[in-house]
Computed example of a mutant assay.
Amino acid sequence: MSDEPRQTYPAAYAAEHGTFALIPAAYVFLVDRGRVLLQMRAGTGYYDGWWAASAAGHVDPGETVMAGAARETSEEIGVEVDEADLEPITAMHRTAPTGLPIDQRLDVFFVARTWRGIPSLQEPDRASALEWFALDELPERLVHHERVALEGWRDGGLPAVTAFGF
């Protein structure tokens, strides 16, 4: 790798192209003996009353997606996951029909088969339940794009990069 400093885009270019925002998020499915841990969303205004990944959230500025996945897992369900134990399953470019910049997402999904601690809800204002489900008996109300990633991984053949909502 070159010793020369990394370059950044000129201010004029950034101003001209700055209307596009891509929000990165990390998702973690804890998997154990043919089961997956899901949490019931509540109080967020987004998919409340639906089952969702074991843990998920936005990647913070300056944070890698792996570090974000490990942090969110600790914050949301109280277990520690080593970044090296995160198995990437897909990167999903996702949008919604609004066309708004906030709906441009890059979701990176991971499976974790090992962790330290006992999963328990840490944010009761954002989730109301935490339950194990057999991978072949997933709940009907599982967040749409998360279902695509989880079932695709479970069934095999999930592409490394997927698209949803286009």
Results as ranks from 00 to 15, higher is better:
E72S: 07
A96H: 12
V108M: 00
D82W: 12
I102S: 11
E146M: 07
P124S: 01
I77K: 05
V65F: 15
G78R: 05
E72R: 13
A55C: 00
E80F: 15
F109D: 10
L100K: 15
V143R: 06
E76V: 08
R141I: 10
D82I: 08
H145E: 15
E146W: 05
F110G: 07
G57E: 06
D125A: 01
Y47K: 10
V143K: 05
E72Y: 08
T114D: 03
G49Q: 05
W51Q: 02
D82H: 13
Q104E: 15
L130C: 10
I89Q: 05
A84Q: 15
E151F: 04
L100R: 14
G117T: 06
W115K: 03
L121K: 07
V143N: 11
R113M: 00
V111G: 11
R141M: 07
I89W: 00
G57K: 04
I102M: 07
W50P: 13
V59S: 01
A84N: 14
W132P: 05
G62D: 03
P124L: 00
Y47A: 11
L150P: 12
R147I: 07
V143D: 11
A55M: 01
A67V: 04
A53W: 11
M66E: 14
L106G: 11
A56S: 12
A129D: 12
T95R: 06
S128D: 10
R71E: 09
V148A: 08
S120G: 15
L100S: 14
A52R: 09
L150N: 03
T64F: 11
R113F: 11
V108D: 02
A149P: 09
H145K: 09
Y47L: 06
G57I: 01
T73F: 13
W132M: 00
Q104V: 04
A67H: 14
T90K: 02
D85Y: 11
T64L: 05
P124Q: 09
T64W: 05
A53R: 03
M66R: 13
E131L: 08
D103Y: 05
M66Q: 13
I89V: 08
G152C: 03
A96V: 13
D136A: 08
V81N: 08
L135F: 12
A129C: 11
Q104T: 13
I89D: 04
E80G: 07
H58L: 09
G117Q: 06
L100C: 05
E80K: 10
I102F: 14
Y47S: 09
